[in-house]
């Protein structure tokens, strides 16, 4: 009987162990898919950074980017900027989806998406434009 109780206690302790690990755990973000998306976005940022700074492109409230004021871009470059924005948004959405999937919870995509939406704005450089909660453009 005593050994039975002891064994049960050990079982309970064992069951709680992964929980403790979980509390301290990070999300998995080191998969090949996420890494390649990161690299692509990093390279694209070299081209987009100037447009963020000029205010031509801004951060939307839903975690993506958008052309805010096309007039700030020389006519010859507008098409290219549109392409950059479209590619960036595609990668961002793929990134949110991949993080959710890499952690075994595809249903987390929406929440990861909104987490990123907040963090992009939080980390944006002063002078960059972003949308506030009601969708209006504000300068940081």
């Amino acid at each position: 009987m005593h050994s039975q109780i002891l064994r049960l206690w050990m079982l309970v302790a064992l069951l709680w162990m992964p929980l403790l690990a979980f509390a301290a755990a990070d999300l998995e973000i080191n998969t090949p898919a996420i890494s390649s998306l990161k690299t692509a976005m990093q390279q694209r940022h070299g081209q987009l950074a100037g447009h963020f700074a000029s205010g031509a492109v801004g951060l939307t409230r839903d975690g993506l980017v958008a052309v805010r004021d096309a007039a700030l871009v020389p006519l010859a470059q507008r098409q290219a900027v549109n392409g950059l924005v479209a590619a960036e948004n595609q990668d961002r959405q793929a990134l949110y989806r991949e993080i959710a999937r890499a952690n075994g919870h595809p249903e987390w995509e929406e929440e990861i998406h909104s987490t990123f939406a907040q963090r992009w704005v939080q980390k944006a450089a002063p002078g960059w434009w972003h949308q506030n909660h009601s969708g209006a453009w504000v300068r940081k």
Binding site: L27, Q42, H45, L95, I99, W108, I112, F116, R119, K123
Partner: peptide
């Protein structure tokens, strides 16, 4: 954890 992961990725991308 999601916030931490987001910060890490944003730091790298930007």
């Amino acid at each position: 954890a999601a916030e931490k992961a987001a910060d890490k990725i944003i730091d790298e991308v930007w």
